[in-house]
């Protein structure tokens, strides 16, 4: 992927130009429980997972919970699909693969999703989660999602 390896800073306003996505995330209780926030650079959407102790999976290391990081990337994929859809309902995961590459440190985490194929019923999405450097992802997810249009059938 040839994306700019830029890590967001809080000086820019996250969602001014995309009020829908903030509303969308606020409407998902699970996303609120994780504590995610949207962030935009131009049209590029990044999901932020601020650090909080409730997302820790291993207090000794310490490390973020792998399941929580997986759920965070699932939310990111679903949000990305939501932005490209006119349907009211949500897309749903069919089959996902998560690779854990590095320990999730107790700091802020970012995720970005790319839709590799958008079909009428099924979409293929890849997500990268990183912390200090975009080039050193802590986890990746790829999988198929039933699109909002497809799940309405």
């Amino acid at each position: 992927m040839s994306r700019p390896p830029k890590t967001p800073t809080h000086s820019e306003d996250p969602s001014e130009s995309y009020p829908d996505i903030r509303k969308f995330l606020e409407s998902i209780p699970y996303a609120q429980t994780l504590g995610v926030k949207p962030f935009f650079m131009g049209e590029e959407f990044t999901l932020i997972l601020p650090y909080k102790r409730e997302n820790i999976g291993n207090p000794t290391l310490p490390a973020l919970h792998g399941g929580g990081v997986g759920g965070f990337m699932e939310v990111c994929a679903i949000a990305q699909l939501f932005m490209g859809s006119k349907a009211e309902n949500l897309s749903k995961p069919i089959g996902i693969n998560i690779d854990y590459l590095r320990r999730g440190k107790p700091i802020e985490t970012y995720a970005r999703a790319d839709i590799f194929r958008q079909g009428s019923r099924v979409a293929n999405v890849r997500v990268r989660a990183w912390q200090e450097s975009y080039d050193s992802p802590i986890a990746t997810l790829h999988g198929h999602f039933l699109t909002a249009e497809g799940s309405a059938d």
Binding site: S27, I28, P29, Y30, A31, L34, H65, G67, G68, G70, G71, F72, E74, V75, N89, L90, K92, P93, I96, I98
Partner: peptide, 15 residues
């Protein structure tokens, strides 16, 4: 994960 149906989010099942 979806307040229209009350179904839990996939991420909770993942965890």
């Amino acid at each position: 994960g979806d307040t229209n149906t009350g179904v839990l989010h996939g991420g909770a099942v993942t965890t």
